[in-house]
Design a protein around this nucleic acid. Structure first.
Lengths: 195, 195
DNA sequence: CCCCGTATACTCGGCGCCGGATATACGGGA
DNA sequence: TCCCGTATATCCGGCGCCGAGTATACGGGG
């Protein structure tokens, strides 16, 4: 059975081990410290499952079992040759081919006709507020990172997310005004249905 | 235990049953016919799991077990009062509060520094091509739906997706040129590392 | 010297999701 | 009439993910 590129956490593990050997708990700490957990979902249960899976597929190997003091023995893992190949191939795939992502908002907005227009306006406005807050928070964070002397490449994914948030805000603004003005296609039926 | 809003497929089931009672297989057919499966992931296994879960939480009920001819008895489900409430509450939540979504591309681009700049350019260009195709396909589809006389509200989620795709293309174009020109912050280090 | 809060490091049971397997009915061609 | 492909309708075994739980070590205050 060939390795399945499902959980991105496995990618993070490969990337970390490409730097130097580590034990799982240290991986988690490092991800936390670098704010990687904002981009790749991390939780302990999955981490150990993923590490074991990578091990089974020989993309990483247990290189040593350290025993400092009297603590439970930590298992140190290292990346293998095929692991390095997999890391780069996976990375290329992630960037080059747009995967189908099921956004929860898209699911919600597709059913917006189920609620009356005025209620829709309320929730859309709430989302606009929330997005505004996220955007300012992101702007502050970027400012801080740039101030610390970190190069743009180190937080390129935040740059991307910011662009996406701005686009969503723009679309929502359009939708809100189109609903308010009743110029969104099919508005008459929409209003009629909820009376 | 209160119902957990994890699988959006449950939302689709509630929405369908809000129209009229159905058996699971018919839900699947209807979703297919309406191209809802493009927005909400559908597969049979999950469908029956989700229906059973909704039943346990009394958001829907088995209203009848029809037996046409000699086929395996089909179970017809209907939405309950609490089910209708849940549907609307869930919908409001989905739209009003932006949920944290872990995009696979974001994970990939955050590690783009692991590959040399020229390789990064190649994969980014490939993604740009793919996005272009998706955009034209979407444009064609929208044209067709509008031509069939369907109101904009019936495909509002496609409108949204189109806006997002355009924004991603714009960002990628910027990133590609900034990489080509070496104006992306930290380019010198990036090139140095891969030599 | 003792106590306790925090950090370290992992474990485990359960549950939701997946998709291939199953079983029957219908319809059309030879 | 027989056969077989397709549609109908559901089932089920397995696996990956989750997060709460466990157990020990360290360090600082009283």
């Amino acid at each position: 059975m060939t390795f399945k590129r499902t959980n991105p956490l496995a990618l993070a593990v490969l990337a970390l081990l490409a730097e130097r050997p580590m034990h799982p708990y240290e991986m988690a700490q490092t991800m936390r410290a670098r704010h990687q957990e904002q981009v790749i979902k991390l939780n302990y249960g999955s981490l150990y499952t993923v590490v074991e899976s990578l091990c089974r597929h020989e993309l990483i190997t247990a290189s040593a079992t350290q025993k400092a003091g009297n603590r439970p023995a930590r298992t140190i893992y290292a990346i293998t040759g095929t692991g390095t190949d997999e890391l780069h191939a996976w990375l290329r795939e992630l960037i080059s081919v747009p995967a189908k992502e099921y956004s929860r908002f898209e699911a919600g907005i597709s059913l917006v006709g189920l609620m009356p227009p005025d209620e829709a306006l309320t929730v859309v406005d709430q989302r606009l507020d929330a997005l505004g807050e996220q955007l300012t928070a992101l702007a502050v964070l970027l400012e801080k990172l740039a101030g610390m002397g970190l190069p743009q490449l180190a937080w390129i994914e935040l740059d991307y997310r910011m662009a996406m948030l701005r686009a969503e805000r723009a679309w929502l603004t359009w939708f809100a005004t189109a609903t308010r003005d009743g110029t969104v296609g099919g508005y008459a039926d929409w209003e009629d249905k909820h009376r």
